[in-house]
């Protein structure tokens, strides 16, 4: 026990360094979520469209990104693609955000599609009968209702992204995971730095879950009767 406490004391100066890694982690998750949401929305619209080609493209995209490991996609994007095209050194964080975004778009598109399908068909008809065109109808009438339905699932997706972002440590992005490994190696003591990161991840996920619950309640205001 004493040994444990002293090992925590030893790494104490590096604890803020580890904890601050959460901003990198959250930055990647947030960036990826934004890309994923926009992409997922477009893909979901392709999936519900009457145009066969768009259906096929969106389904193929989803199939590929859901059918391969994320860490594989990340390695492909960071190591293989730049070499193939002779791009030289690429910014690891940028690659991470884009890859996670592309991956998340595939999952998000399924969530959004199910949300759109759950909106009463009459809402499309009412908007159509008022002369509202396709894009404003989707943006103002259908998607707000769809998103309200799927908010818990989207929040889950964001939480998954936050957790999965630890994979970026494999391409030398100094997120919280990577930092805990660096500090571990520096002091040659594993438990304290990893425990700090572990707890920090959990606290952040708890916080995100809490925020998600709040937003959900706020949005369901118009449901109360």
């Amino acid at each position: 026990m004493e040994q444990l406490i002293s090992s925590f004391k030893t790494i104490a100066p590096s604890i803020p360094y580890i904890i601050n890694g959460i901003w990198v982690t959250l930055g990647i998750a947030l960036g990826a979520a934004i890309i994923g949401f926009v992409l997922g929305t477009l893909l979901s619209l392709c999936k519900i469209s009457n145009v066969k080609l768009l259906n096929g493209l969106a389904r193929g995209y989803t199939s590929i990104f859901r059918g391969t490991p994320l860490i594989m996609q990340l390695a492909l994007a960071y190591f293989a693609v730049p070499q193939l095209f002779g791009l030289g050194d690429v910014n690891a964080t940028t690659v991470a955000i884009i890859t996670f975004g592309l991956n998340s778009g595939a999952y998000m598109s399924e969530i959004i599609r199910s949300g759109i399908n759950a909106v009463d068909k009459g809402q499309f008809e009412a908007a159509g009968a008022l002369g509202v065109g396709y894009w404003p109808m989707m943006k103002d009438i259908i998607l707000p209702q769809a998103i309200k339905n799927i908010l818990p699932a989207m929040m889950n997706e964001f939480i998954t992204l936050t957790k999965d972002s630890a994979i970026v440590s494999t391409i030398a992005v100094t997120d919280m995971m990577r930092r805990s490994q660096i500090v571990s190696a520096q002091y040659y003591t594993y438990f304290p730095p990893m425990f700090v990161a572990f707890i920090m991840y959990y606290l952040v996920i708890l916080l995100l879950t809490f925020i998600g619950g709040r937003i959900e309640r706020r949005l369901s205001r118009s449901d109360q009767s």
């Binding site: 009463d120 009459g122 809402q123 008809e125 009412a126 908007a127 009968a129 008022l130 009438i141 707000p144 209702q145 309200k148 118009s222 449901d223």
Partner: peptide, 12 residues
């Protein structure tokens, strides 16, 4: 203009 059996007001 059209009026439906089930109203279809925009709930949000």
């Amino acid at each position: 203009g059209m009026v439906f059996q089930h109203f279809y007001l925009f709930p949000h």
